[in-house]
């Protein structure tokens, strides 16, 4: 029997484990979100969902800024599915944050953590646009979602974020996916991140 922690099937990474409560929280959010807009899950959850054993309070989800009306429909749908927004119960008010490219947060009703940090971007954000346009599919049990290419995520954490926590997350990804990591992609993404990091 195959005893590895993951496999790659038709370009989708399959993590061999059952869903935990954090996955279920994220899955419930993504199920609503994807009816309204495209998205990418980035940063800590990429490492945690692939086995990095650490606690977390938020899950970062990036999305291209959407029109006001579209957002209001999404907001109402999230409320209907028992989420609440930290910033306000009024979607018009919350949209003002998004249009200024400020992130907003959603948690489940009567809960504070974990929360989704919902981060808008546009085409001027070159690195966010790049990772968004090069998604890697990943599946845990019946939950399939999109993350950046593993090589990109590693380098983003190492070269741009660089905190102790990010360096440990990157190390986890380097080791866990050592059979999957493509060295030429690492080189390509290193150049890209170096070019666009401020």
């Amino acid at each position: 029997m195959d005893k590895t922690g993951y496999s790659l099937v038709e370009n989708t990474i399959i993590i061999k484990r059952e869903l935990n409560s954090l996955d279920i929280f994220v899955m419930e959010f993504i199920e609503v979100l994807k009816k309204h807009t495209d998205y990418l899950i980035v940063s800590g959850f990429v490492s945690i969902s692939t086995g990095r054993t650490r606690g977390t309070e938020d899950v970062d989800v990036i999305f291209p800024l959407i029109e006001r009306e579209k957002f209001i429909n999404l907001f109402k749908d999230l409320i209907k599915h028992n989420f609440w927004c930290y910033q306000s119960d009024n979607p018009e008010e919350v949209y003002n944050y998004l249009k200024n490219f400020q992130s907003i947060r959603f948690a489940k009703k009567d809960q504070l953590f974990p929360n989704i940090e919902f981060i808008p971007f546009d085409s001027t954000k070159k690195l966010k646009s790049f990772e968004f346009n090069h998604p890697q599919k990943i599946k845990i049990s019946n939950f399939e979602f999109k993350i950046p290419p593993i090589e990109f995520e590693i380098l983003y954490k190492e070269l741009l974020l660089s905190s102790q926590k990010d360096m440990a997350d990157a190390r986890h990804l380097r080791e866990f996916f050592s059979d999957l990591i493509n060295k030429s992609k690492l080189e390509e993404y290193k150049n890209l991140i170096t070019k666009y990091k401020k």
């Binding site: 590895t4 954090l22 080791e175």
Partner: peptide, 29 residues
């Protein structure tokens, strides 16, 4: 972190510990 990632790669049963930590954190919060 490296040692644990390699153990996890060879033995996915360790994901059970991973789930216990996450589930208990969320329950407590």
């Amino acid at each position: 972190v490296s040692i644990y990632a390699n153990k996890l790669k060879e033995n996915p049963d360790l994901f059970k510990q991973h789930a216990e930590l996450i589930d208990s954190q969320i329950k407590a919060s």
